[in-house]
Every structure is written in C-alpha cells, then in structure tokens.
Design a protein around this nucleic acid. Sequence first.
DNA 1: TTTCTAGTTCTTAAAATAAAGAACCAAAAA
DNA 2: TTTTTGGTTCTTTATTTTAAGAACTAGAAA
Lengths: 167, 167
Amino acid sequence: MLNQIQKKMENTINGLSITDQQLQLVEKLGLMFETPGFQPAAARIMALLMVSDRVELTFDEIRETLQLSKSATSNAINLLLTVQKIDYITKPGDRKRYFRSVIAQWKDGMKDKFKEMEKLGNVMREVLEQRPASTPEFNKNFSEMISLMEYIFQEIPKLFKSWEENR
Amino acid sequence: MLNQIQKKMENTINGLSITDQQLQLVEKLGLMFETPGFQPAAARIMALLMVSDRVELTFDEIRETLQLSKSATSNAINLLLTVQKIDYITKPGDRKRYFRSVIAQWKDGMKDKFKEMEKLGNVMREVLEQRPASTPEFNKNFSEMISLMEYIFQEIPKLFKSWEENR
DNA sequence: TTTCTAGTTCTTAAAATAAAGAACCAAAAA
DNA sequence: TTTTTGGTTCTTTATTTTAAGAACTAGAAA
C-alpha cells in the first residue's frame, strides 16, 4: 500500500528522484517559459532546474527526467547557455557538467522584457509622427496611449531602484 | 521624373493609397505584434489600421494593401475581432464593414500583459513553497527574485492610476 | 426571382519548428 | 593503445503554423 503510493508519487530514474507534484510544476512553469520564445524542451529544462530538489543536474539527469533525446537535450541546454538562463559548474574528478538556473539573470530578464515593451512605444511614436492631421480624434487617442506607455516605462526603472534600496 | 518618384513612393491599389514609408512601418510594427502570439497576417492588419491615413478600412482595402488572400484576411480579421483588437462600423447604404483599431483596448491590453507576468510570479511562489530546506542559498535567491516580481507588479497598477489622475 | 456583394468555410500546400535516432568525436580512463 | 564517457552534429520525421485558392453562402440589390 505504501509502496503503491510511493510508486504513484515518486519517479526515480537513475539518480534524480522527482515527485508527480514536481513534474506538474515543471509542466506549468514550462508552459509559461514557452511564451517568451523558448522551445518546449528548453522551457522544461529551465523549469526543472527551479523545481527539482537538487539544483545542479547533469545532462543525463535532465535527459532522463524529462524523457528527451540526447540531441534535444544538447540543443536546448546550449540555447539556454547562450541566453544565459543557465550556467554550469564542474566538480573535481568528475567529467560531467552540472547545470543550474541562473536566478540572478531573472532580474535582468525582467528588465529586458520591459525594454522590449518600451521599444513598442518608440515605434508607436514613429507612427504618430507620420500620421496626417486629417484624423484628429484617432491621433489624440493614439497619442494618449503613447503617453501612458512612456509614463509607465519611465517609472518602471525607478521601481527596480527603490526595491533595491529598500531590501 | 516626378512620376518615377511618385511610383516609387506611393502604392495605390483600389482606393487606399499608401506610401513605402508607411508600408515599412507596417512591417516593423507587425513584427512587434507577432511576438504576443499574433500570426503575421493579423499583426500586419493591426499595424495597417494604425499607420494608414484612413483609419477605417474595408475588407478588400486591407486584403489588397497587404496582398492577402480572402481566407487569410477573413481569418485574421475574425481573430482580431474576437480578441477585440479591432472593431468595425457600418455606413448607411453600404454593405461593407469598416474595420478600425480599438485603441482604448491597448490600455487594457497592457494591463493584461502585466497580469500575465504576475501569474508567473504566482507559480514561482508555488515552486518556492515546495522547495526543500536543503538548498538554502538557492531558496534565498529564488525568494528574493519573487519578492522583486511581487513588488513590481504590486506597484504597476498604481502607476496606471496615477497616470489617469494626472492627465 | 435572379444576380451580386461581401464575405466564410473547406481543402490543400508550403514552410517553419521541434525533436528523435544514429553516427560521430574529443578528452579522460583503463 | 583501446575503451568509455559525455556529449555534439547530421539526417530524417512528425507536428504545427500560415496562408492560398476554390467552392460556397446569406442577405441585399436588381
């Protein structure tokens, strides 16, 4: 009976053991990471490195836990390395790399995301500048929307700053 | 000579005339709208309705200006209608619908986007709550990142409010 | 009533994405 | 030197996305 629950709750494949609850969290987080342009495999790896009990995982632990092929694992890991969402450490007398989530990068990641949205505001202003005077109502609304965007994105860096000061 | 410039600068197909500069803006804006999950055709239509001199365009004006098939135009327009990025008006004695960008929706759109990012914070907290005590360093950094996210997304609605009050 | 307009829907095709599997390779271990 | 480990790279396949084109349709106009 206890064995049955154990079987239901824990999936151990070669070293890394992970619960069903954790796997569900990996899927949920993974879905959220997919939207910012990551392929499913990469998104799941990012998620796994946040969810799993051990925070430094080898290539094979990742591969087997997520049931990926070597190529998919390799490509996803290298993608995440180049965008610096993960990095790795090595251990003396061990050839494997141990990959881990670069949490510090998340702050910069958020900043980048806001910067992206800010760019939209800039193009919008470009659009406004070339609009004809013949559509005053539209132009007014459009201009107001841009003002809002610009206000928000001017204030957001201040939020980062004030958070850093107050913690 | 002037004719040549005219030809180079203006593209008139059946009613709606648009300059090369405007078409370039449509492409640029279109690319930015693609990332939030819009298909190219829909993204370009949104962009066109912001860029073109006339802000209310018919099905065929859109179709011909963007060189789309009827089906692509129809599907993209209906997508944009259901997510309320565009709406349309009708004119007496005219069977066509005139589509236009719903600019007011952009403010809500931004709010939705921030809400999306907020959701990520919530799942992150869920992840934190199930983390083992055996990784204190990781947990601490993770927790700090979540605090930052929560702080930012708690402050952003205030920004919207203060903008609305001050304009 | 028939025809036309303003689209919609269905089927197909092209292209892009994602990942599997096998072959391959460099460095370390035996 | 040969073998093993820890991957990488190449080729192929499956899936998804995007859009074209043709056939179709509801309501208005003739």
